[in-house]
């Protein structure tokens, strides 16, 4: 049993993956909590596809440099996020339909760009590869976590106010757009930083699933953030252990673990769970 739990981390690359995933587990879930509360869960979906063409272009111009691919991903992700918001405002349409259109386009463009290139493995970019977590990738994840937490702490109050009551924010303090933009940059940074280990499609799982699950455990914002971080760390450790022992890719293993914790929260959580609804007096 102890072997099952500890043996994976006797290997250097697994320890790197663990360190990177834990860094991401601390930084990403608080952003996920805000995305859930602002009813922007779809945005995370869009970003995981939206960053793909940027990563592809980075890889094509600079080979498999993590920094080039990361930069491309950040630029592409921000472009998609801002373009969708702008289109929705200009056309008076709903943002979600514009987002759905854009992310399909971005995914197709990304796949088309990568497919023809030798040396770039599409499945590694989509689903990650723990073997590939080298120093730059690890520094990237740790660096993003180091930047995300203080910046989030700084913009916390305006972000809460803007999420709580955008009309009031606009009428009093103004500049709601600035905080929203900073927040979007942080989200894009977190999605991109996780792509080497977890893949673009899976790194969002560590951001969203713990955040959604945390809603079933706490009715305070701080409580939800704490719970989400805890669940994400748990998912990272358990996911990597499963990944090693069952020989499945780390990204899907971590997301499946996070998904299992979400399912448990949905069924047995202390707030608005299926158990609570079935047993209102319990």
């Amino acid at each position: 049993m102890l072997d099952f739990l500890l043996e994976p981390f006797t290997l250097g690359f697994m320890r790197r993956a663990l360190a990177g995933c834990l860094a991401l587990s601390v930084a990403a879930p608080p952003l996920g909590v805000f995305l859930v509360l602002r009813r922007m869960s779809l945005m995370s979906d869009v970003l995981q596809h939206g960053v793909l063409p940027g990563i592809a272009v980075g890889a094509i111009f600079a080979g498999l440099s993590v920094w080039a691919m990361g930069l491309g991903g950040v630029v592409a992700g921000l472009t998609v996020a801002l373009l969708a918001g702008w289109l929705a405002r200009r056309t008076g349409g709903r943002e979600d339909s514009q987002l759905a259109g854009l992310y399909l386009l971005a995914l197709a463009a990304g796949v088309a760009l990568i497919a023809g290139r030798r040396g770039i493995d599409l499945t590694h970019i989509l689903f990650g590869n723990v073997l590939a977590v080298d120093d730059p990738a690890l520094f990237g994840m740790a660096g993003v976590a180091t930047v995300t937490l203080p910046v989030l702490a700084l913009i916390w109050r305006p972000l809460v106010l803007e999420s709580l009551d955008p009309g009031f924010m606009a009428a009093t303090a103004g500049r709601g757009g600035l905080w929203h933009l900073i927040f979007l940059v942080l989200v894009v940074l977190c999605v991109v930083s996780g792509f080497v280990a977890l893949g673009t499609l899976m790194s969002v799982g560590l951001m969203m699933l713990p955040a959604v699950a945390a809603q079933h455990w706490s009715n305070s914002l701080a409580g939800q953030v704490r719970t989400a971080v805890l669940l994400a760390c748990l998912s990272s450790v358990a996911g990597l252990i499963l990944s090693y022992n069952l020989d499945i890719p780390a990204g899907p293993a971590i997301v499946l673990t996070a998904g299992a914790l979400w399912a448990f929260s949905l069924i047995a959580g202390s707030r608005a769970s299926l158990w609570r609804q079935a047993m209102p007096d319990a």
Binding site: L37, V160, S163, L164, D165, P166, G167, F168, A171, S218, N219, S220, L221, G223, Q224
Partner: peptide
């Protein structure tokens, strides 16, 4: 404002 945009499901 009437019909305030305040999100009444926000945990606060």
């Amino acid at each position: 404002a009437q019909g305030s945009q305040l999100d009444r499901s926000f945990p606060i």
